[in-house]
């Protein structure tokens, strides 16, 4: 179903339907994440990917035209690059440990300590929150600053233009 949605996104020229299918695709990804037991990420995907992004895209479409311009050149080179990169990535996955295997390196480093000590040290039953806000507090602060910067960027771009019109 996700492949069908992706194909539909590529094939459709009407950007309105592309946005709707993208939103649908986000919901599908959210369900996949739910199946993988990543509820926190699934919630983010459903609300940001399917919800707010769709609204913003539709808003942008309202401001611009609703039809995709015909491609100016043949997409053979980009297609080749995409295929080679995809092939390399798939080749790279062959070297990874088996999915969900407890012996893999990533599950040997700090994860056991977080899982064993986290609830006792932070008093927070949701390990995701404990890791995100406490053990990885610096990273999350950085993320927040990134979002802040994004918001400030949008304000700076769209505000200034408005003021210049009034001059």
């Amino acid at each position: 179903m996700m492949a069908a949605a992706a194909l539909a996104i590529v094939r459709t020229r009407n950007l309105f339907s592309v946005v709707v299918v993208c939103s649908h695709y986000s919901f599908l990804i959210a369900s996949v994440l739910l199946v993988l037991d990543a509820v926190d990420v699934a919630m983010t995907e459903a609300s940001v990917g399917a919800g707010i992004t769709t609204v913003l895209m539709l808003g942008t479409l309202y401001l611009t035209r609703g039809e995709e311009a015909a491609p100016m050149h043949r997409p053979l080179v980009p297609l080749a690059v995409a295929l080679v990169t995809g092939g390399l990535l798939v080749y790279g996955t062959l070297g990874l440990p088996e999915f969900g295997s407890p012996e893999s390196v990533i599950h040997q480093h700090v994860a056991p300590r977080y899982l064993e000590q986290g609830p006792a040290e932070t008093g927070v039953p949701n390990v995701v929150t404990a890791v995100l806000a406490s053990y990885r507090g610096f990273d999350t602060l950085g993320e927040t600053v990134v979002i802040f910067t994004g918001g400030v960027g949008v304000i700076a771009l769209l505000r200034r233009r408005r003021r210049r019109r009034e001059d």
Partner: peptide
Amino acid sequence: HGDFGPGGGFQ
């Protein structure tokens, strides 16, 4: 409730 169930500040 982000520290007990799924979710948190971002969501």
